[in-house]
Design a protein around this nucleic acid. Sequence first.
DNA 1: CTGAAAGCGCTTACAG
DNA 2: CTGAAAGCGCTTACAG
Lengths: 349, 349
Amino acid sequence: MPRNRREEAARHGITGRAATINDIARLAGVSKKTVSRVINRSPLVRADTREKVEALMREVGYVPDPLARGLAFRRSFLIGMIYDNPTAQYIVDFQYGALDALRNSGFELVVHPCDSRSPDYVSGVRSFVLQQKLHGVMLVPRVSEDQALADMLQEVGCRYARVAAVCLDAPERSVITHDRDGAAEVADYLQTLGHRDIAMITGPAAYRSAMERTEGFVGALQRRGIEVPKSRVVEAGYTFESGVAAAEKLLGARQRPTAIFCFNDEMAAGVYRVAMRAGIQIPQQLSVVGYDDSPLASRLWPPLTSVRRDTRDTGRIAAAMLLQGEGEARAVASVRPHLIIRDSCQPPQ
Amino acid sequence: MPRNRREEAARHGITGRAATINDIARLAGVSKKTVSRVINRSPLVRADTREKVEALMREVGYVPDPLARGLAFRRSFLIGMIYDNPTAQYIVDFQYGALDALRNSGFELVVHPCDSRSPDYVSGVRSFVLQQKLHGVMLVPRVSEDQALADMLQEVGCRYARVAAVCLDAPERSVITHDRDGAAEVADYLQTLGHRDIAMITGPAAYRSAMERTEGFVGALQRRGIEVPKSRVVEAGYTFESGVAAAEKLLGARQRPTAIFCFNDEMAAGVYRVAMRAGIQIPQQLSVVGYDDSPLASRLWPPLTSVRRDTRDTGRIAAAMLLQGEGEARAVASVRPHLIIRDSCQPPQ
DNA sequence: CTGAAAGCGCTTACAG
DNA sequence: CTGAAAGCGCTTACAG
């Protein structure tokens, strides 16, 4: 209760301003250095001293000033989120997750979207990190795949957590999303339904995540004796419009595939659009699967089967990674995708 | 070019660390107070002194440390964004807009989602603002409508910018979104198409924005001689599911309305779902209008006519407002909604 | 286990 | 128009 804390503080002679380390030191009858040790959880404080100081801090509602601490530490209490991602839901979910981990930690989340196609975006991130003296940054796909960015962060000594389809870095800096497995699960599902002529609308091959999904999907089908010819693979750009264009190519062919796996839900919506205009029934005449399991997936008709990524968890794990001590060795962090089955697939006619 | 700047800095005897105000003062042959005056754009500096100092700062790539400045100012260089909004696209667009305004200003954006239904969320914001010594915060609907929150910010002396349907505060703290006008435009459009039996799926009446839209819509229809009976107004919660429930009520009636105005696109998607299941053709048998013009609007089939809000502009204006000097009087800031016509409406049969 | 001194990189308050 | 001193609220480096 703030009011009580303020009264408590007033009782101790602190009025009209926030308590400082000097107030706590004076009231506890110790030096400010000792209070500092308590704040920083140094073991070099006698248990009863620690308890007395902690009780006092709670009583007057003392919170150390992050600006002063940051100045002395030469490092702020800010975590940056670096991203270049077109999907709003992903960004917001990731932010929520990161904030879950940061709650009550004294750290705050600073957002930094950027344009990874711009030639000087790395130096833009460099300035951001250096000027704000960030405690660490989270690298979200697609920027997480950029080795030049990671190298720059190493060079300037900024810690980071890297979210990517596979382990691209030291395990203590990696959160792995296993896109290969997500795509393989889709392949197994479509094969089990009986599909043999299956197409794919992928993301740009330059992205590792797109390659992983492609290989995961094609590999799983091959293992079950199904080949995916080149003509059934259309590279697109993760946008609705690129999905429309890709679908026109696939559905305009003499022989249509019986199923299409799209690397995100936006492109799957593009397939729906083209199918609707061409009078092709989903799922009766065409099965469709998306990736992301965004809200859009359940808004479409028929509701779209899609691969869910636990984005909030991913954000939580990435942020938690940055709060951990430097030295603490740890296992590789993973989040696993899984297929959410709705109504957009059925056995081929 | 950072490398050149680093070499330049090295030439001046600054190596292995960022330049400080002391370096600049020494190199310029002035006191650090004079450099400080240049940083803070004080007029009390001779023109040639200013130019010399500024040239030097550029040369060595000097940027004042926000932590040190913040500590001395007792106020950080952080702008907070306070929100409790279920629509991801709105949040992301607003963030982009705010960052547009903050670019090259030395300020950064710290995000703070919260749950306005939680009883102690105001005190949560209070701690956030006080502990981080925020320079200011942006209040986004719906939290922007909470007078208790605004009062708290006044009390603790934190400046804020308030985005709301109408002016709820001093003009220099308000960005007005004119929801009334957006709703009226929908009413005029539907009336012009010939609709007379028009329904509405609203947001919670407790929200001012929902009331504004309701009154704007009903008022515009009344001016054209059309009444909206109570039975045609269903209150819902801005979610897809609540839209489904509301649509079931409206479309299950003996006499169906010929048009439905939904207070967001998510709920309009709910209407689509129910119409699809009931075999009601949109727009032949039912016209539908949404609000937000989210990506979903153009993904639905038929593409949804919807009211666009320029959310990125709104964020830009709100952030710019916080960067302005205290005293500068200014006109009320406005963003105007406008109807985007797609294919979900036609004259009633 | 504890503390006095100096310092982080800026600004305020004051003097000239 | 300019500057020397003190201070913002913490921590580091050192001494005991």
